[in-house]
């Protein structure tokens, strides 16, 4: 029976010189990091560059690593700082088309790939509706101020608790909860057409 080592244990093993442990951390966190960074900077290439930079910084810091906080707090703090700097400094061009433009399949845009292999949609109209919904949701997240965006992504997709997210964003827990509240208030207005169709009042 193989025991799954915790993040902290893996990182301590990396500190001790075990390269294999670093590979395991790389496998464990490459997808969450790329996805978080992509939702933050809205540029796939930049998101991958930043994610690679996160792993490089983790590697560089290995000898001084002390498990004073959760590994994910440390990891996502590095990622969030890089993302916020990137958004503020570079203001990357959005790759997505506007909502008024003809909708094309994601595979042609090279914008996103889903995990499903060779989607087969017997109902093209349904497919277009789904794509339109996804674009609307992505757009709504992208419009959020950076810190609110980071809070939503960490809360929703990384399922980090409030204490962790507040450490990552360097604010109090109550400030974080207010941040999330404002973000969700904005999202429910931006996504009103989609929300209305799914909510029974």
């Amino acid at each position: 029976m193989t025991v799954t080592r915790s993040d902290v244990q893996l990182m301590l093993d990396v500190k001790a010189g075990d390269q294999q442990s670093f590979e395991l951390l790389l496998q464990r966190y490459r997808t969450p990091l790329v996805n978080f960074l992509y939702r933050m900077v809205r540029n796939r290439e930049q998101a991958e560059d930043l994610a690679q930079e996160v792993f490089l910084r983790v590697y560089r810091a290995r000898e001084d690593y002390e498990p004073s906080a959760k590994f994910t707090t440390w990891l996502f703090r590095i990622a969030t700082n890089l993302a916020l700097n990137s958004v503020r400094d570079h203001r990357y061009q959005k790759l997505e088309t506007s909502l008024d433009a003809p909708i094309v399949a994601d595979a042609e845009q090279g914008d996103e790939r889903t995990m499903e292999v060779a989607d087969k949609h017997p109902d093209i109209e349904q497919h277009l509706v789904e794509e339109a919904r996804k674009k609307m949701i992505r757009h709504a997240i992208e419009k959020l101020p950076e810190k609110q965006r980071a809070a939503v992504l960490l809360h929703k997709y990384q399922e980090l608790d409030y204490a962790e997210i507040s450490k990552i964003l360097r604010c109090s827990e109550s400030a974080l909860k207010s941040l999330l509240f404002r973000a969700y208030e904005t999202l429910r207005v931006e996504l009103a057409p989609l929300v209305a169709s799914s909510v029974k009042h």
Binding site: T31, V34, N35, Y38, R39, R44, E112, R113, T114, M115, E130, R133, K134, I137, R138, I141, V152, K156, Y157, L191, L194, V195, S198
Partner: peptide, 8 residues
């Protein structure tokens, strides 16, 4: 709705 976004 946020769950509808695919994982890259």
């Amino acid at each position: 709705l946020l769950d509808e976004l695919p994982v890259m």
